[in-house]
Design a binder for these strands. Structure first.
Lengths: 150, 150
DNA sequence: ATCCTTGCAAAGCATTTGCAATTTT
DNA sequence: AAAATTGCAAATGCTTTGCAAGGAT
């Protein structure tokens, strides 16, 4: 699990001379404390009661900013929206093809796997690689049961 | 490179009792003969002269169908669109962060890597995994040169 | 004091859908 | 002949943008 604290994350913002506004802190904190990979609309709705003046546009702008900084990654989902994931520790994702659930996978083998992917890519293509995204698709335990029952 | 022929691909359609229409053949053939991972709009524009009645909506519908069948995979790109890639042989992608180019990587190590990703995911999560997408990000050779020159 | 950021509303796009006409099996 | 698919146009929904007011450094 990502064990980054809000202070560390805020430090990242300062490092890039990005202003630390209440909105950004609020959204950052939301991402740090939720493992559910929420879509934009959900983040907005859950945060709106806490900060009634917050606008959807600001949530979009802020998330895009975080993505550029590499603090957060985007997970596109089938129905056109995007989900967001705070990327404190390297991990990859399993996505359920039936219900769309996204699950983080923290495998001890992953750093090594990622390194092979990177070096193979550089060996074969002349790219200079700096990051990677890995996703596996299948059926989550709940959906396996649900589909078998019937 | 994907060496699948149009006939093999059409066979996949028949296998699922999907009707083989001229539009589907045309789009399938386009994907088989282009390694450039085109966005929907490009596919439509390049095919329109050949079949003037073809509609954009049909291209969208057809591509979605192919994705469901697993014939083709989607590659989301930053500006909101989606690119398509015929998925005949397992490979992964390198995407240039500067120009957006997508390059296929056919590494001999990939099947093994993919297998580890899958088994680690199943071991750690109770998902039943059936496919995966891997992407690495960096700078392509051209962009490295371009950015260094200046 | 300056420059950045927010919030609002409107605009912009990519993608999907309903339905009648057409085509494939 | 029956069922699926196409094409059109309109609708939908996500995301971005312009600009004035407000806030952080």
């Amino acid at each position: 699990m990502a064990e980054t604290t809000i202070d560390e994350a805020v430090g990242e913002l300062r490092k890039y001379h990005i202003r630390v506004t209440p909105q950004r802190k609020l959204i950052l904190n939301y991402l740090l404390t939720h493992e559910n990979h929420p879509p934009v609309e959900t983040i907005y709705q859950e945060l709106a009661p806490e900060m009634p003046t917050l606008s959807l546009a600001t949530v979009y702008n802020t998330l895009n900013l975080f993505v550029e900084l590499g603090l957060v990654i985007e997970i596109p989902n089938e129905n056109g929206g995007i989900r967001y994931d705070y990327f404190g520790k390297p991990h990859y994702h399993a996505i359920c093809e039936n219900c769309g659930k996204v699950t983080d996978i923290y495998s001890p083998l992953f750093p090594q796997i990622e390194a092979s992917l990177k070096s193979e890519a550089e060996r074969l293509t002349d790219y200079k690689i700096d990051s990677s995204h890995v996703t596996v698709y299948g059926l989550c335990a709940d959906c396996q049961r649900r589909l078998a029952d019937h």
